[in-house]
Computed example of a mutant assay.
Amino acid sequence: MYPLMLVNPGLTTNLDDIYAWRNYQSEMENQTIVYVLVLAGLSDLPSLQLPLFLVFLLIYLITLTGNLLILLLIFTDSHLHTPMYFFLGTLACMDLCSSSVTVPRMLFDLLRDTRFISVPACITQVYFFFFFALSEISVLAVMSYDRYIAICRPLHYMQIMNWKVCVHLVLIVFVFSAAYSSVHTLFLAKLTFCRSEALQNFFCDLPQLLQISCSDIFINVLLIFLLGIMFGLAILTVTFFPYIVILRTVLKISSKTTRSKAFSTCSSHLTVVFIFYTTIFFNYFRSSANDQFTEDKVSSVFYTILTPFLNPLIYSLRNQELKISLRKTLQRLQIKNYSD
Protein backbone atom coordinates (compact mmCIF):
# COMPACT_ATOMS: atom_id res chain seq x y z
CA MET A 1 0.00 0.00 0.00
CA TYR A 2 1.26 3.49 -0.82
CA PRO A 3 1.81 5.98 1.95
CA LEU A 4 -0.96 8.50 2.55
CA MET A 5 1.23 11.51 1.88
CA LEU A 6 1.70 11.25 -1.88
CA VAL A 7 2.63 14.08 -4.21
CA ASN A 8 -0.33 15.97 -5.67
CA PRO A 9 -0.61 14.87 -9.35
CA GLY A 10 -1.63 18.41 -10.31
CA LEU A 11 1.76 19.72 -9.20
CA THR A 12 4.00 17.21 -10.99
CA THR A 13 4.74 16.08 -14.50
CA ASN A 14 6.29 12.80 -13.40
CA LEU A 15 4.12 10.02 -14.89
CA ASP A 16 5.23 7.50 -12.26
CA ASP A 17 3.99 9.77 -9.46
CA ILE A 18 0.66 10.32 -11.25
CA TYR A 19 0.14 6.59 -11.81
CA ALA A 20 1.05 5.86 -8.17
CA TRP A 21 -1.48 8.43 -6.97
CA ARG A 22 -4.26 7.03 -9.21
CA ASN A 23 -3.52 3.46 -8.13
CA TYR A 24 -3.62 4.52 -4.49
CA GLN A 25 -6.99 6.29 -4.99
CA SER A 26 -8.35 3.21 -6.74
CA GLU A 27 -7.26 0.98 -3.87
CA MET A 28 -8.91 3.26 -1.29
CA GLU A 29 -12.17 3.37 -3.26
CA ASN A 30 -12.29 -0.43 -3.47
CA GLN A 31 -11.72 -0.90 0.26
CA THR A 32 -14.73 -1.27 2.55
CA ILE A 33 -14.52 0.21 6.02
CA VAL A 34 -15.38 -2.41 8.65
CA TYR A 35 -17.05 -1.72 11.99
CA VAL A 36 -16.85 -5.26 13.37
CA LEU A 37 -13.53 -7.02 13.96
CA VAL A 38 -12.65 -10.68 14.35
CA LEU A 39 -10.43 -12.04 17.14
CA ALA A 40 -8.23 -15.01 16.31
CA GLY A 41 -8.45 -16.29 19.90
CA LEU A 42 -6.02 -18.57 21.67
CA SER A 43 -6.43 -21.55 19.37
CA ASP A 44 -8.25 -22.52 16.17
CA LEU A 45 -8.34 -26.21 17.09
CA PRO A 46 -11.86 -27.21 18.27
CA SER A 47 -10.44 -30.01 20.39
CA LEU A 48 -8.53 -27.48 22.51
CA GLN A 49 -11.39 -25.04 23.08
CA LEU A 50 -12.98 -26.76 26.09
CA PRO A 51 -9.70 -27.74 27.84
CA LEU A 52 -8.41 -24.16 27.45
CA PHE A 53 -11.71 -22.81 28.76
CA LEU A 54 -11.52 -24.98 31.89
CA VAL A 55 -7.85 -24.18 32.54
CA PHE A 56 -8.23 -20.42 32.20
CA LEU A 57 -11.53 -20.39 34.08
CA LEU A 58 -9.75 -22.07 37.00
CA ILE A 59 -6.86 -19.57 36.77
CA TYR A 60 -9.31 -16.65 36.69
CA LEU A 61 -11.23 -17.94 39.72
CA ILE A 62 -7.98 -18.40 41.67
CA THR A 63 -6.91 -14.88 40.61
CA LEU A 64 -10.17 -13.40 41.92
CA THR A 65 -10.01 -15.43 45.13
CA GLY A 66 -6.33 -14.66 45.86
CA ASN A 67 -6.59 -10.92 45.29
CA LEU A 68 -9.91 -10.62 47.14
CA LEU A 69 -8.39 -12.56 50.05
CA ILE A 70 -5.45 -10.13 50.22
CA LEU A 71 -7.88 -7.18 50.20
CA LEU A 72 -9.98 -8.82 52.93
CA LEU A 73 -6.96 -9.48 55.15
CA ILE A 74 -5.64 -5.94 54.73
CA PHE A 75 -9.08 -4.45 55.42
CA THR A 76 -9.91 -6.54 58.50
CA ASP A 77 -6.49 -6.86 60.20
CA SER A 78 -5.46 -3.63 61.97
CA HIS A 79 -1.82 -4.77 61.99
CA LEU A 80 -1.83 -4.49 58.21
CA HIS A 81 -3.07 -0.88 58.17
CA THR A 82 0.29 0.47 57.01
CA PRO A 83 1.39 2.23 53.81
CA MET A 84 3.09 -0.90 52.52
CA TYR A 85 -0.12 -2.94 52.68
CA PHE A 86 -2.19 -0.01 51.42
CA PHE A 87 -0.14 -0.11 48.22
CA LEU A 88 -0.29 -3.92 48.15
CA GLY A 89 -4.08 -3.69 48.40
CA THR A 90 -4.09 -1.18 45.54
CA LEU A 91 -1.98 -3.60 43.48
CA ALA A 92 -4.48 -6.38 44.24
CA CYS A 93 -7.31 -4.11 42.99
CA MET A 94 -5.36 -3.44 39.79
CA ASP A 95 -4.82 -7.19 39.28
CA LEU A 96 -8.54 -7.86 39.76
CA CYS A 97 -9.54 -5.18 37.28
CA SER A 98 -6.85 -5.85 34.66
CA SER A 99 -7.63 -9.57 34.48
CA SER A 100 -11.36 -8.80 34.27
CA VAL A 101 -10.79 -6.59 31.22
CA THR A 102 -9.56 -9.49 29.06
CA VAL A 103 -10.28 -12.89 30.64
CA PRO A 104 -14.13 -12.98 30.69
CA ARG A 105 -14.23 -12.02 27.02
CA MET A 106 -11.61 -14.66 26.20
CA LEU A 107 -13.57 -17.35 28.10
CA PHE A 108 -16.74 -16.36 26.27
CA ASP A 109 -14.97 -16.59 22.89
CA LEU A 110 -13.60 -20.05 23.72
CA LEU A 111 -17.18 -21.36 23.81
CA ARG A 112 -18.14 -20.16 20.32
CA ASP A 113 -16.88 -20.56 16.77
CA THR A 114 -17.01 -16.90 15.66
CA ARG A 115 -15.33 -14.20 17.74
CA PHE A 116 -16.71 -10.84 16.63
CA ILE A 117 -16.22 -7.55 18.47
CA SER A 118 -17.31 -4.07 17.41
CA VAL A 119 -14.69 -1.38 16.82
CA PRO A 120 -15.98 0.88 19.67
CA ALA A 121 -15.96 -2.08 22.08
CA CYS A 122 -12.44 -2.96 20.93
CA ILE A 123 -11.16 0.58 21.48
CA THR A 124 -12.84 0.66 24.91
CA GLN A 125 -11.05 -2.56 25.85
CA VAL A 126 -7.74 -1.03 24.73
CA TYR A 127 -8.37 2.01 26.96
CA PHE A 128 -9.06 0.00 30.11
CA PHE A 129 -6.22 -2.41 29.35
CA PHE A 130 -3.75 0.47 29.10
CA PHE A 131 -5.24 2.17 32.16
CA PHE A 132 -4.93 -0.79 34.51
CA ALA A 133 -1.58 -1.98 33.08
CA LEU A 134 0.00 1.45 33.51
CA SER A 135 -1.59 1.85 36.95
CA GLU A 136 -0.06 -1.45 38.00
CA ILE A 137 3.40 -0.46 36.74
CA SER A 138 3.14 2.90 38.52
CA VAL A 139 1.96 1.30 41.77
CA LEU A 140 4.96 -1.04 41.61
CA ALA A 141 7.19 2.05 41.26
CA VAL A 142 5.51 3.69 44.28
CA MET A 143 6.04 0.47 46.26
CA SER A 144 9.77 0.70 45.49
CA TYR A 145 9.84 4.22 46.89
CA ASP A 146 7.91 3.01 49.95
CA ARG A 147 10.43 0.22 50.57
CA TYR A 148 13.29 2.72 50.17
CA ILE A 149 11.84 5.01 52.87
CA ALA A 150 11.04 2.06 55.19
CA ILE A 151 14.52 0.51 54.99
CA CYS A 152 16.80 3.51 54.46
CA ARG A 153 14.95 6.11 56.57
CA PRO A 154 12.98 4.08 59.12
CA LEU A 155 12.87 6.81 61.79
CA HIS A 156 11.11 9.21 59.42
CA TYR A 157 8.94 6.60 57.70
CA MET A 158 5.57 7.53 59.21
CA GLN A 159 6.26 11.23 58.77
CA ILE A 160 7.12 10.88 55.07
CA MET A 161 4.67 8.10 54.13
CA ASN A 162 1.62 9.32 56.02
CA TRP A 163 -1.88 8.44 54.84
CA LYS A 164 -2.35 11.75 53.05
CA VAL A 165 0.80 11.18 50.99
CA CYS A 166 -0.22 7.60 50.20
CA VAL A 167 -3.67 8.61 48.95
CA HIS A 168 -2.19 11.47 46.89
CA LEU A 169 0.35 9.12 45.27
CA VAL A 170 -2.38 6.67 44.26
CA LEU A 171 -4.56 9.49 42.91
CA ILE A 172 -1.62 10.79 40.85
CA VAL A 173 -1.13 7.27 39.46
CA PHE A 174 -4.79 7.07 38.42
CA VAL A 175 -4.83 10.53 36.79
CA PHE A 176 -1.57 9.85 34.95
CA SER A 177 -2.81 6.44 33.72
CA ALA A 178 -6.12 7.90 32.56
CA ALA A 179 -4.36 10.68 30.61
CA TYR A 180 -1.87 8.26 29.02
CA SER A 181 -4.63 5.83 28.00
CA SER A 182 -6.79 8.63 26.64
CA VAL A 183 -4.01 9.85 24.33
CA HIS A 184 -3.60 6.41 22.75
CA THR A 185 -7.33 5.72 22.40
CA LEU A 186 -8.11 9.17 20.96
CA PHE A 187 -5.60 8.67 18.15
CA LEU A 188 -6.74 5.07 17.76
CA ALA A 189 -10.37 6.20 17.35
CA LYS A 190 -9.34 8.31 14.33
CA LEU A 191 -8.18 5.25 12.40
CA THR A 192 -10.32 3.31 9.96
CA PHE A 193 -10.22 -0.46 9.60
CA CYS A 194 -10.85 -2.00 6.21
CA ARG A 195 -9.03 -5.31 6.22
CA SER A 196 -10.70 -8.66 6.73
CA GLU A 197 -7.81 -10.28 8.65
CA ALA A 198 -8.48 -11.33 12.22
CA LEU A 199 -6.71 -9.71 15.15
CA GLN A 200 -3.98 -12.18 16.01
CA ASN A 201 -4.75 -12.21 19.71
CA PHE A 202 -7.50 -13.12 22.19
CA PHE A 203 -8.19 -9.48 23.09
CA CYS A 204 -7.92 -6.08 21.42
CA ASP A 205 -4.27 -5.12 21.69
CA LEU A 206 -2.84 -1.98 20.11
CA PRO A 207 -0.10 -3.56 17.91
CA GLN A 208 -2.55 -5.96 16.25
CA LEU A 209 -5.10 -3.17 15.70
CA LEU A 210 -2.49 -1.04 13.96
CA GLN A 211 -1.57 -3.94 11.69
CA ILE A 212 -5.09 -4.21 10.25
CA SER A 213 -5.69 -0.46 9.91
CA CYS A 214 -5.86 1.09 6.44
CA SER A 215 -5.05 4.58 7.78
CA ASP A 216 -1.69 6.21 8.31
CA ILE A 217 -0.45 4.83 11.64
CA PHE A 218 2.77 6.84 11.85
CA ILE A 219 1.50 9.00 14.76
CA ASN A 220 0.23 5.94 16.66
CA VAL A 221 3.54 4.10 16.32
CA LEU A 222 5.43 7.27 17.26
CA LEU A 223 3.29 7.64 20.39
CA ILE A 224 3.98 4.05 21.42
CA PHE A 225 7.74 4.55 21.26
CA LEU A 226 7.98 8.17 22.47
CA LEU A 227 5.56 7.84 25.39
CA GLY A 228 6.77 4.34 26.12
CA ILE A 229 10.43 5.38 26.25
CA MET A 230 9.81 8.69 28.04
CA PHE A 231 7.45 7.49 30.74
CA GLY A 232 8.82 3.96 30.75
CA LEU A 233 12.33 5.15 31.60
CA ALA A 234 10.96 7.43 34.33
CA ILE A 235 8.95 4.60 35.91
CA LEU A 236 11.85 2.16 35.52
CA THR A 237 14.17 4.63 37.29
CA VAL A 238 11.75 5.11 40.17
CA THR A 239 11.28 1.34 40.38
CA PHE A 240 14.87 0.11 40.29
CA PHE A 241 17.10 3.00 41.44
CA PRO A 242 15.92 2.83 45.09
CA TYR A 243 17.07 -0.80 45.22
CA ILE A 244 20.68 0.26 44.73
CA VAL A 245 20.49 2.22 47.98
CA ILE A 246 18.32 -0.45 49.61
CA LEU A 247 20.89 -3.18 48.84
CA ARG A 248 23.71 -1.13 50.36
CA THR A 249 21.65 -0.44 53.49
CA VAL A 250 20.48 -4.04 53.95
CA LEU A 251 24.03 -5.42 53.65
CA LYS A 252 25.07 -3.16 56.54
CA ILE A 253 22.36 -4.53 58.87
CA SER A 254 23.90 -6.73 61.54
CA SER A 255 20.71 -8.57 62.53
CA LYS A 256 20.15 -11.62 60.33
CA THR A 257 16.42 -11.65 61.11
CA THR A 258 15.93 -8.02 60.06
CA ARG A 259 18.09 -8.53 56.99
CA SER A 260 16.18 -11.65 55.86
CA LYS A 261 12.84 -9.87 56.40
CA ALA A 262 13.98 -6.93 54.27
CA PHE A 263 15.27 -9.27 51.56
CA SER A 264 12.01 -11.25 51.61
CA THR A 265 9.88 -8.14 51.09
CA CYS A 266 12.13 -6.78 48.35
CA SER A 267 12.50 -10.09 46.53
CA SER A 268 8.71 -10.52 46.31
CA HIS A 269 8.34 -7.06 44.83
CA LEU A 270 11.23 -7.50 42.39
CA THR A 271 9.87 -10.88 41.22
CA VAL A 272 6.52 -9.29 40.33
CA VAL A 273 8.27 -6.38 38.59
CA PHE A 274 10.53 -8.69 36.59
CA ILE A 275 7.65 -10.87 35.32
CA PHE A 276 5.54 -7.88 34.33
CA TYR A 277 8.28 -5.87 32.61
CA THR A 278 9.84 -8.72 30.63
CA THR A 279 6.53 -9.74 29.04
CA ILE A 280 5.48 -6.11 28.33
CA PHE A 281 8.80 -5.24 26.65
CA PHE A 282 8.83 -8.50 24.72
CA ASN A 283 5.41 -7.71 23.23
CA TYR A 284 5.73 -3.98 22.49
CA PHE A 285 9.39 -3.29 21.75
CA ARG A 286 10.39 -5.82 19.13
CA SER A 287 9.71 -6.52 15.48
CA SER A 288 6.21 -7.69 14.58
CA ALA A 289 6.83 -10.30 11.94
CA ASN A 290 3.91 -12.44 10.85
CA ASP A 291 5.48 -15.67 12.11
CA GLN A 292 5.60 -14.35 15.66
CA PHE A 293 1.84 -14.43 16.34
CA THR A 294 2.22 -17.45 18.62
CA GLU A 295 4.89 -15.65 20.64
CA ASP A 296 2.59 -12.61 20.87
CA LYS A 297 -0.18 -14.73 22.34
CA VAL A 298 2.14 -16.44 24.82
CA SER A 299 3.52 -13.11 26.08
CA SER A 300 -0.01 -11.69 26.22
CA VAL A 301 -1.15 -14.62 28.34
CA PHE A 302 1.69 -13.92 30.76
CA TYR A 303 1.04 -10.24 31.41
CA THR A 304 -2.77 -10.29 31.15
CA ILE A 305 -3.60 -13.59 32.89
CA LEU A 306 -0.64 -15.16 34.67
CA THR A 307 0.80 -12.01 36.29
CA PRO A 308 -2.44 -11.13 38.17
CA PHE A 309 -2.66 -14.83 39.06
CA LEU A 310 0.93 -15.03 40.38
CA ASN A 311 1.05 -11.71 42.27
CA PRO A 312 -1.08 -12.78 45.28
CA LEU A 313 0.73 -16.12 45.42
CA ILE A 314 4.16 -14.45 45.41
CA TYR A 315 3.26 -11.92 48.09
CA SER A 316 1.30 -14.31 50.31
CA LEU A 317 3.83 -17.14 50.22
CA ARG A 318 6.82 -14.87 50.96
CA ASN A 319 5.16 -12.46 53.39
CA GLN A 320 5.12 -13.61 57.00
CA GLU A 321 2.68 -10.95 58.18
CA LEU A 322 0.12 -11.95 55.56
CA LYS A 323 0.51 -15.63 56.46
CA ILE A 324 0.08 -14.85 60.17
CA SER A 325 -2.99 -12.74 59.43
CA LEU A 326 -4.47 -15.53 57.28
CA ARG A 327 -3.78 -18.09 60.03
CA LYS A 328 -5.50 -15.91 62.64
CA THR A 329 -8.49 -15.36 60.37
CA LEU A 330 -8.87 -19.11 59.78
CA GLN A 331 -8.58 -19.77 63.53
CA ARG A 332 -11.30 -17.20 64.26
CA LEU A 333 -13.54 -18.83 61.68
CA GLN A 334 -12.94 -22.26 63.21
CA ILE A 335 -13.72 -21.00 66.71
CA LYS A 336 -16.89 -19.35 65.43
CA ASN A 337 -17.99 -22.58 63.71
CA TYR A 338 -17.38 -24.61 66.88
CA SER A 339 -19.29 -22.11 69.02
CA ASP A 340 -22.25 -22.26 66.61
Results as ranks from 00 to 15, higher is better:
153 R>H: 14
134 L>G: 06
63 T>Q: 10
143 M>Y: 05
58 L>A: 11
115 R>S: 02
50 L>Q: 01
75 F>K: 14
83 P>N: 06
151 I>A: 00
64 L>D: 03
125 Q>V: 01
85 Y>W: 04
125 Q>L: 00
38 V>G: 03
122 C>E: 05
129 F>K: 14
77 D>H: 03
83 P>G: 12
125 Q>W: 00
152 C>G: 05
52 L>D: 05
153 R>D: 12
95 D>E: 06
111 L>C: 10
134 L>M: 14
144 S>P: 05
137 I>L: 15
50 L>A: 11
154 P>S: 14
84 M>T: 09
104 P>N: 05
90 T>P: 00
139 V>W: 02
102 T>Q: 09
88 L>E: 04
129 F>G: 12
143 M>L: 10
97 C>M: 14
128 F>Y: 15
123 I>C: 00
52 L>M: 12
131 F>W: 10
72 L>T: 15
143 M>R: 13
63 T>F: 05
63 T>R: 12
101 V>I: 15
53 F>M: 04
117 I>R: 03
103 V>K: 09
143 M>D: 00
101 V>M: 09
115 R>I: 08
60 Y>E: 01
67 N>G: 02
90 T>D: 02
46 P>R: 11
54 L>Y: 13
48 L>M: 07
101 V>Y: 09
98 S>Y: 01
56 F>W: 08
151 I>T: 14
69 L>F: 10
153 R>K: 15
73 L>W: 08
39 L>K: 06
66 G>V: 07
146 D>P: 03
83 P>A: 13
68 L>Q: 08
114 T>P: 00
128 F>H: 09
98 S>E: 00
